[in-house]
Design a protein around this nucleic acid. Structure first.
Lengths: 107, 107
DNA sequence: TGCTTATTTGGCAATATAGCCAAGAATATC
DNA sequence: GATATTCTTGGCTATATTGCCAAATAAGCA
């Protein structure tokens, strides 16, 4: 694989990696409904606010979410809703592997 | 976040994580064209075969690819082509952030 | 100005991931 | 059976990620 090709897949991996965490997937799902501030998300998630802030930073750096200051609060919103198209496929994969694993157990 | 919800996002993250690597994204792209054996992919990628084999195992465990033995060789094929729908969006994100970052540099 | 609240960042420890080499397992060929 | 080939796995080191606490920053309010 040449350098240019590697770079292209590296760039893609950065985006995918940004979503490769349960908490961040949850955040994306929530922000798809409405924009929220860090405190609200922290409440829903139930982790330390610093942890949630870091997850949001990862999503922001990847360009998946956008932030906007409103007084003391920082509101985050989904910048790339096309990301959501992916989830349907992910669910399909989960269901299909569940079936496969069930048939393996039966053997 | 309750346990059931956490589990759901955990399951999704497993799938997304399986793709969160440049080499594995490359593999998915290649297998979208045609099924290939480990040696062929190793050739294209230019890493140790053991490394490629491990990447394939990750994709297989996640249910993204499927393998089939053919003599000494193991052919892998894409099991979930809907995964590809995602790449378009990823490219859009990359392009849009490139523009954003350009404007930041200009400042 | 001093105080409170919301958020980010530094620093650290625990855990996970990636890559290579060498060794093992499976299959084909002689 | 011995040998070669393809692939996987064990074992190791290096690196990256995650999560928490504590400290820093930023904005609003008394």
């Amino acid at each position: 694989m040449d350098v240019k090709t590697r770079d292209r897949y590296e760039a893609r991996a950065t985006i995918v990696k940004a979503m490769a965490h349960p908490t961040r997937l949850f955040i994306v799902d929530k922000l798809a409904q409405k924009s929220m501030c860090v405190a609200e998300l922290t409440d829903l998630i139930g982790a330390d606010m610093s942890t949630v802030s870091r997850h949001l930073a990862v999503l922001k750096t990847a360009g998946i979410v956008q932030d906007r200051k409103k007084g003391v609060q920082v509101y985050y919103r989904l910048r790339m809703p096309c990301i959501l198209n992916f989830f349907g496929c992910v669910e399909t994969v989960i269901k299909s592997t569940a079936i496969t694993q069930l048939s393996l157990v039966k053997k």
